[in-house]
Design a protein around this nucleic acid. Structure first.
Lengths: 198, 198
DNA sequence: GTCTATAAATCGATAGAC
DNA sequence: GTCTATCGATTTATAGAC
């Protein structure tokens, strides 16, 4: 993020302290969660004064949303998954999902979101927000039977995988090649999507 | 917790404020996490003064470990799982696991642990502690092949299930009868334990 | 045993000098 | 643009009266 093409001539009076603050905030939010990162810690990590953080970004909430900057649209990622129909949807879903998480430009933002979803104060955002508005519609778009049952099953496996592989970095999941992850979890998800259920 | 059998006669001078504080702490730690619950909130919920909390339990950390008091020994719960061998271990494992979580006397303590595991400061306790010392040995006790690969797979599904069913209370998982949960997830876990893997 | 009062630290946020 | 200084609120924790 900090490394752009070097501009010609003298740099302006404000070097990149705004970007430095944003980078520090991204890193701290991703590792310490929202309530765990203080404005002062962000300022210290960026090597500037705490007041500058407010000067550039206003309140702490403003800094948080500025640091998020999710560079992906979930519906756009999920479009090819629904386009192929229910057959093989598990494999396409895993591929789409992992390709986003394995992108080093996107992962920090997703880690931030994941950590924040775990905090008690914001955890209903996942249960009442993300799940019904992005995962739920995927089930009806795939024309599953009982999607209101099957999609939470899918979510329960994907959330656990994300947590161990990307957040907690549990081996050997963390270092496993994408293709092996897909091949390992696709049968599970395909059964949840279209297989027989009690 | 608050409702025990009513004792005969006059209650002693110190009623049960210590137990009231402990109950309030348990409830708040379980719902708000460690950093999310304040001593003052515990005192208010117990209907006492904040200083009493310190008087009875010392520091906030002391109160936390006092509020934990996990009433189960994981190895004892898992004993019948390993005793039966690898065949049908998934079903026995799910039954043992869910019976603990569905026990209303135990769930608050487990919720507290789960919430605390998610906090950035203590999250390595799960990855470096719980997983290798209780889940890992289960794999070798069952004499699986490649247990260091298979047990994290099992953990990834169980963690996701616990998170959605008990922490986030996502429907219909939260209200699903135990037998249906077992029947739904047993095939997945059995494949992770003994089935073919890439 | 229970409470008031307060110390000591830390937080987010603001005002204003340079 | 950057910083010093500080306010006001909140937190844990302690000291001591009753």
């Amino acid at each position: 993020m900090t490394s752009g093409p070097a501009k010609r001539g003298r740099r302006p009076g404000a070097p990149d302290t705004r970007a430095a603050i944003l980078d520090a905030a991204r890193s701290l939010f991703a590792t310490q969660g929202y309530s765990g990162t203080t404005i002062r810690a962000v300022a210290a990590a960026a090597g500037v004064d705490g007041a500058l953080v407010h000067h550039y970004f206003g309140t702490k909430d403003d800094l948080f949303v500025a640091a998020l900057d999710i560079p992906v649209d979930p519906r756009q990622i999920l479009a090819p998954v629904v386009a192929g129909g229910a057959d093989g949807a598990a494999e396409r879903f895993l591929l789409a999902f992992l390709s986003v998480w394995d992108d080093p430009d996107v992962r920090p933002a997703l880690l931030t979101v994941a950590r924040t979803m775990m905090e008690p104060a914001t955890q209903r955002v996942f249960a009442d927000g993300f799940l019904p508005v992005v995962i739920g519609p995927l089930g009806v778009a795939l024309d599953l039977d009982r999607p209101e049952l099957r999609m939470p099953l899918v979510a329960s496996q994907v959330v656990g995988l994300i947590l161990l592989r990307y957040v907690l970095l549990v081996e050997p999941l963390a270092s496993m090649p994408t293709e092996q992850v897909v091949a390992t979890y696709a049968p599970t998800l395909q059964r949840y999507l279209t297989g027989p259920l009690p």
